Amino acid sequence: MASPGSRRWAYVRIMAGTILGGGLGFYVMHRIKTSYKAKMEEGLRRYKTHLLAKEKEAQQLQDDGCREDQAQLLPDS
């Protein structure tokens, strides 16, 4: 049978390990979450930039098409 001091020390180790393990787990999950959010924000920023570039390119193609149509409608003098 274990002595009372030994049993008390075992309880202290279990409680300390639980508290420290919980703190470490919280810290690690917090770091993972902030890293993930930063990556997602960067990806979203790049996606928005890509969409704006495509929209600008489409608008430019449409403007070029309108100019060609106008050039065909106007007679050459």
Rank of each mutant, 00 (worst) to 15 (best):
M1F: 11
M1W: 06
M1A: 10
A2N: 11
S3D: 05
S3A: 09
S3I: 00
P4S: 09
P4T: 06
P4A: 11
G5V: 02
G5Y: 05
G5E: 10
S6M: 08
S6T: 09
S6A: 12
R7L: 15
R7D: 14
R8D: 05
W9S: 10
A10P: 00
Y11V: 12
V12D: 03
R13H: 10
R13S: 13
I14K: 15
I14C: 13
M15P: 00
M15A: 15
M15T: 12
A16M: 12
A16Q: 11
A16I: 12
G17C: 06
G17W: 00
L20W: 02
L20A: 07
L20G: 03
L20K: 02
G21V: 01
G21E: 01
G21F: 00
G21S: 02
G23P: 00
G23E: 01
L24Q: 03
L24Y: 04
G25Q: 02
G25C: 03
G25I: 01
F26L: 06
F26A: 04
Y27A: 09
Y27C: 06
Y27F: 12
Y27D: 03
M29Y: 06
M29Q: 08
H30R: 13
H30A: 11
R31N: 08
R31A: 07
R31T: 05
I32Q: 04
I32Y: 01
K33R: 14
K33I: 14
T34G: 04
T34N: 10
S35K: 07
S35E: 04
S35C: 03
Y36I: 13
K37E: 15
A38D: 01
A38R: 04
K39P: 00
M40C: 13
M40Q: 15
E41D: 14
E41Y: 03
E42F: 01
G43P: 00
G43R: 00
L44A: 11
L44Q: 13
R45M: 08
R46E: 13
Y47V: 04
K48N: 12
K48T: 08
K48D: 08
K48A: 07
K48Q: 15
T49M: 10
T49C: 02
T49Q: 13
T49Y: 04
H50G: 04
L52D: 15
A53G: 02
A53C: 03
K54A: 06
K54H: 07
E55S: 13
E55Y: 08
K56V: 08
K56F: 06
K56R: 15
E57M: 10
E57R: 14
A58E: 09
A58W: 05
A58G: 02
Q59C: 08
Q59F: 11
Q59E: 15
Q59W: 08
Q60S: 12
L61K: 14
Q62L: 10
Q62A: 12
D63V: 04
D63S: 07
G65R: 03
C66M: 11
R67I: 02
R67S: 04
E68H: 08
E68P: 01
D69W: 01
D69N: 07
D69K: 09
Q70P: 01
Q70Y: 06
Q70R: 10
Q70K: 11
A71T: 07
A71P: 01
A71S: 09
Q72T: 08
Q72K: 12
L73R: 14
L73N: 09
L73K: 13
L74Y: 07
P75I: 06
D76E: 13
D76L: 11
D76A: 10
